[in-house]
């Protein structure tokens, strides 16, 4: 269940940034999660609700942009979508595929609510 420690590190990062920005609370967090990043998004959402208790992100909505992976064949150089690590090149059948994208796991942005005067 590494999603729990991951959820805690998201909360820590956004909470610190939001306080710097003088936020009263965080209403939304945008995440980019590649399909090859090793993150189970449902599990992450579940852990996030527990991990965010008592922080500024307690009521934040997680918006997760899941991105497909892209592989490039090192033999014939064609690129194609991959959703797992043992992909085969659809052009030449080679297994020597390099992963170009799909391993991203980023906090893109968040929406904060500022305190009224």
């Amino acid at each position: 269940m590494h999603e729990m420690s991951i959820a805690l590190s998201i909360v820590e990062a956004v909470d610190a940034k939001a306080r710097e920005e003088g936020a009263a609370k965080i209403t939304g967090i945008d995440l980019l999660v590649g399909r090859l990043s090793g993150i189970e998004t449902e599990s992450l959402k579940f852990c996030f609700s527990a991990a965010s208790k008592g922080s500024l992100a307690e009521d934040a909505v997680l918006a997760i942009d899941e991105r497909e992976g892209t592989g490039e064949c090192t033999a014939c150089k064609s690129s194609f979508p991959v959703s797992f690590y043992y992909a085969e090149c659809p052009e030449c059948g080679s297994l020597a595929v390099s992963i170009i994208s799909g391993e991203e796991f980023q906090i893109k942005s968040m929406t904060i609510e500022e305190e009224g005067e």
Partner: peptide
């Protein structure tokens, strides 16, 4: 002055790990 509940988007572009 911010109106009550003014919301704002902040770019982070930060790796979770």
């Amino acid at each position: 002055h911010h109106p009550e509940g003014h919301s704002r988007k902040i770019a982070m572009e930060q790796d979770v790990l």
